[in-house]
Design a binder for these strands. Structure first.
Length: 509
RNA sequence: GAGACGUUAGCUCAGUGGUAGAGCAAUUCCCUUUUAAGGAAUGGGUCCAGGGUUCAAGUCCCUGACGUCUCACCA
């Protein structure tokens, strides 16, 4: 990024002048703050009365923040100070700055928009009725050497500011300074994750942390990132899911565990994809599919109520139970393809062709069924819905449905036409699990490089005995998208994956 | 991976093949209750990069980089 050198140089000169006046912005280590700006404004009347008595002699209230607006008027000035959460107007009068430091006014004149400033003073209301702080003393706390893209703002409306999405993501701090919505998204995400934790903690789940560096990345169908561990001189992979280690903990007789952690999938970027994202998975021994459904319903209801104070969000009522629909029934209703047609690969391909979908790349029944689901059913699943009963080929970790050959005890939850969770009764039969892995290895040999690898350590754990267990996974980023109404994953990822920026200053980088 | 669109001052954006523009921000000056403060003056450009066409290219053509959107792939 090309830098306006003159602005930077001017501000470095101002920095030196501030130092010469005894106001080195970088020298202060701590500045005592009495109140947040928001608190100051909320409790203004009470705090203003308190400060009335002390008006003449000593400083009363102390606040700090970034100067976001500045209106100088000769020997007085107005400024707005923002602590990120809220902003308050400052009134600075040359004659009313404390006499003990005659350089204070000169120092103030060297303050720019973007600088951090600590001030003391008393509260008052201006002629036009704005709650303000009458400044007695000021302490520069940082100097902005760049021209921050702070626009003008009135009544919460912003004129200018930073809108270039590229710059917003690459320099997220500027986005957070300039765009209130960016800050809100950050806070909402944090609140949602906190409430998810609280939900599971209160239900007696143990939060655990499992390895990110793994010899074989399993638990999902995805290509892993590869890296190298020098000490052992081995290739290791970044995890693509949390699943297998969490189930090994279940095998260790810890009956309820959850993890919220980053996983990495070596894939492209889109509105709803980022190569690293945050996954929530929880497992509960002795629980089945129905228990998992209720848990998902409770979780969404809890988070919506706690974070947004309402189970109704974006036209969806998370207070109600979710619809429960059999996958094959849903496909038949939406596409007219009967379950019998999807019993062999040949008839399934024929059915696909009949409804106008390409069949060239299809070589297993499960894949076709999931494609039909995606194409015909998903867009209609606006209301929270559990689709139940997934084909065995695409569910290598889910328990077989004893009543339906070829299908597993697995469901996915959908809201507003998008998948929000994936759950199943976990396989605890080590023989079955080994067969599934072997089948996946067969798929891998046939060219599916996302097929699940064999994991002997996991099999060994199952062979030691795992109780019947229900498990569920939710992409936290997509959950936040859903609850906040964000249209892009990038809006709720602080630092989304971006190609390196080619700068003119450093073309070699 | 494919297509469409975009990239001009610190920020937001105009710009019709013929001298590079505006608002805000910045610099200097005036102004002791303003609030998108106001007034006067000033400075600020690798028009994404590299080729090409042309007397002349920010503008037209080609290639590339980065981004946005849509589609494809995946979750």
């Amino acid at each position: 990024m090309s830098e306006d050198r003159s602005i930077r140089e001017i501000r470095l000169e101002k920095l030196q002048q501030l130092r010469d006046l005894g106001f080195d912005p970088y020298a202060t280590e701590k500045f005592k703050i009495d109140h947040s700006v928001k608190h100051l404004l909320n409790e203004f009347d009470q705090l203003a009365n308190l400060s009335e008595s002390a008006k003449e002699d000593k400083p009363t209230l102390s606040i700090a923040g970034r100067v976001v607006a500045l209106r100088e008027m000769g020997k007085a000035a107005f400024a707005h100070l923002s602590d990120g959460e809220d902003r308050i107007q400052l009134y600075i009068r040359k004659n009313d700055l404390d006499e003990w430091n005659e350089n204070a006014w000169a120092a103030f004149k060297l303050v720019d928009i973007g600088d951090h400033l600590g001030v003391t003073g008393h509260l008052f209301t201006t002629k036009t009725g704005e709650k303000s702080l009458y400044v007695h003393t000021l302490t520069p706390l940082s100097k902005a050497l760049h021209n921050l893209p702070l626009g003008k703002e009135k009544d919460g409306e912003q004129w200018y500011g930073l809108t270039d999405v590229d710059q917003r993501y690459r320099h997220r701090h500027l986005d957070l300074i300039c765009n209130h919505e960016a800050r809100e998204q950050l806070l909402n995400r944090s609140r949602i994750v906190s409430e998810v934790r609280r939900f599971f903690d209160h239900r007696g789940y143990l939060e655990v942390e499992t390895p990110l560096l793994q010899l074989e990345a399993g638990g999902a169908a995805a290509r892993p990132f590869l890296t190298h561990y020098n000490a052992y001189d081995i290739q290791v992979k970044l995890r693509i899911s949390l699943e297998l280690y969490l189930k090994r903990i279940i095998c260790g007789d810890v009956p309820k565990v959850y993890e919220i952690g980053r996983v990495f999938r070596n894939e492209g970027v889109s509105n709803r994809h980022n190569p690293e994202f945050t996954l929530l998975e929880w497992y509960e021994a002795y629980a089945n599919l129905e228990d998992m459904m209720e848990c998902v319903e409770d979780l969404f209801r809890h988070v919506a109520n706690k974070v947004f104070g309402d189970a109704h969000l974006h036209g969806i009522d998370f207070g109600k139970p979710w619809h429960r629909v059999d996958l094959m029934t849903a496909i038949q209703e939406r596409s007219g393809i009967a379950p019998e047609e999807l019993s062999t690969l040949e008839s399934a391909k024929a059915a696909m062709k009949r409804v106008g979908l390409p069949t060239e790349k299809e070589n297993n029944l499960g894949g076709i069924i999931e494609k039909l689901l995606e194409h015909f059913v998903e867009p209609h699943l606006q209301e929270p819905t559990f689709i139940v009963g997934y084909p065995i080929e695409t569910s290598p970790l889910a328990k077989k449905d004893p009543n339906r050959p070829g299908f597993t005890r697995r469901f996915e939850g959908y809201v507003l036409g998008r998948e929000v969770c994936n759950a199943f009764s976990e396989i605890n039969d080590p023989i079955d699990q080994r067969e599934r892995f072997e089948q996946q290895m067969g798929e891998h040999d046939k060219g599916d490089d996302e097929a699940h690898p064999m994991d002997e350590q996991f099999i060994y754990a199952l062979e030691s005995g795992m109780p019947p267990t229900g498990g569920c996974g939710i992409g936290i980023d997509r959950l936040v998208m859903l609850l906040t109404g964000a249209e892009h994953l990038r809006e709720i990822l602080l630092f989304p994956m971006m190609r390196p920026e080619l700068t003119h200053d450093n073309p070699e980088d």
